[in-house]
């Protein structure tokens, strides 16, 4: 099995303080910790699980700066065999559509039986790249995938729908599957493991290597242009209870008593 996994190196923002940068179109990233996009972590795990069962090779591809090597090394330590980083100044400002074009630039010449991605990224959350890439490659896809069974010539997948329901689909292979979180339990890797994976191949390619023109990527090759970033208006805000843990607990108990909840 030749499996390609597309990953993204993203800032962790769930518990971090977010500030808008001087361009007014992005966030300040200096103080943020970057890591593999959560959805992609599950995609890498799924690829490694398949490889461990059936044999083959797992190739990781990302579009990003040199910083993304941290994520690539992590993927290699998890069991991927090689990594390709697509880096070029011309790629800056690429939206999901342009990013898919960049990925297509390298993947079109690689052998694969399966391409795995995360359903979406935790930063911009477009949930588009995988499906657009499949469209360029002319292969079928499935998104929100919670279960993968590989058969001869096709794969049977469970897609997550709303309200706890799933949809079972059969998709012809080679296919692109965009996985949902929870499909497996991503393994942890030690610092030692990451250090050891340094011996594995990590290739860097740019615009010219992919045969792309400058206007096809970046902002000019995108569908979407960010005009402005802003802090969302507050419609409703909770009354924040203060005064120390005891006082807060008493206030909650009082509130619950008043409503007959205790």
């Amino acid at each position: 099995m030749e499996i390609i996994v597309c990953v993204k190196h993203v800032p962790e923002t769930a518990e971090a303080e977010i500030a808008i940068d001087s361009s007014g179109k992005g966030i300040k990233t200096e103080d943020l910790v970057f890591d593999i996009n959560e959805w992609d972590d599950y995609a890498v795990e799924e690829a490694v699980l398949i490889k461990e069962k059936l044999g083959g090779r797992v190739t990781i591809v990302t579009v990003g700066s040199e910083d993304a090597d941290k994520t690539l090394r992590k993927c290699l330590a998890k069991g991927a065999d090689r990594a390709i980083r697509l880096t070029d100044k011309a790629f800056d400002g690429s939206d999901a559509y342009a990013t898919a074009k960049i990925l297509y630039g390298v993947i079109k010449d690689l052998p694969f039986d399966l391409i795995l991605t995360g359903t979406q990224a935790g930063d911009d959350g477009y949930a588009q790249v995988g499906v657009i890439l499949a469209g360029f490659l002319g292969i079928p896809h499935a998104t929100m995938v919670k279960k993968i069974e590989l058969m001869e010539g096709f794969t049977r997948v469970n897609r997550e729908l709303e309200g706890g329901l799933e949809q079972v689909m059969e998709v012809g292979t080679p296919a692109l599957l965009a996985v949902q979180t929870g499909i497996n339990e991503p393994r942890y890797v030690s610092i030692m493991g990451i250090r050891k994976a340094r011996q594995k191949e990590l290739k860097v390619l740019g615009l010219n290597d992919l045969g792309l023109k400058e206007e096809e990527v970046g902002e000019s090759g995108s569908w979407i242009t960010v005009e402005e970033m802003f802090i969302p208006p507050v419609e409703k805000e909770a009354e924040i209870l203060v005064g120390g843990l005891d006082a807060i607990s008493s206030k909650i108990v009082e509130t619950l008593r008043a409503r007959g909840l205790i």
Partner: peptide, 16 residues
């Protein structure tokens, strides 16, 4: 208008 970074900030964006 879209939410990004888990709903902490919003963006206004135009389409080609």
């Amino acid at each position: 208008v879209r939410q990004v970074y888990g709903g902490k900030v919003n963006i206004k964006a135009s389409l080609r």
